[in-house]
Amino acid sequence: MARTVVCVTEAFQKPKTLSDLVIFSDPRPQIPAGDLSPYMKYCSMYAKEHKVWLVPHRFVVDNKLYLCLFDPNGSVVAHQGSLHRHLSSQSKMDTDHSVHVIQTPVGNLFLCVDTDIYYPEVLRLAKLKGADLVISSQYINAYDFKPKRITTGIWNAAQQQGLYVVGCSNAFSAVAAPWELTPDGTGFLVQPEFTQHLFCKLYFNKLERSAMGGKLAEQLNPELCKRYAAIISQR
């Protein structure tokens, strides 16, 4: 796996030619429960028809917010529940317990659900588990949308962990990468814009060139991390 072509598009629109991985962009907070079954069925057909890996929109099952991954045969091969909640939904929603990184031909993927992108600890564990591509799908209230939501979210994740982050939300779509790998040095391969369409080629071998690329565990201070493991992990 040397290169992956990512395409963000509105649900069920034909992806751009050569796309390997498609992410559905949807302005809604999540798929309504009543629509979930047919939605997943259509997603499966879409992945099969276009021969792509597919990350559809967020959905709720058993009070947990999820993202999932379809393979080009139309099967769900992985899912990730949100590990943290927006505080307004804390009383209504449950959380998942662990970080799953999925090895696929389109990269070692971590599906970052909603607000998890604002927790560097989550992304750190994903990186330690070998992730090189993060798909972040989130909902941001219009009155809450400010630069901080991007810089402390997908941008920080890409710089801090040395991996690619495709950000897809109701407010923007963008691709963040370690700043050393972006032609304009901004840390974005595709600048954040209010759009539901995006197309980008990601070269995984380039990640080694960034300061945080490669094996991060070798760069951290083992003794310090052990000594303060409980403090670093707590919120």
Binding site: L87, H97, V99, Y118, R149, E218, L220, I232, R235
Partner: peptide
């Protein structure tokens, strides 16, 4: 309080602490 970044998840924290404790 940042509503987007103030939740806690003890199960996840335990998993992360275990990962840090296992270094290197």
């Amino acid at each position: 309080v940042d509503l987007y970044a103030s939740d806690s998840n003890p199960d996840f924290s335990r998993q992360l602490a275990a990962a840090y404790s296992a270094f290197p």
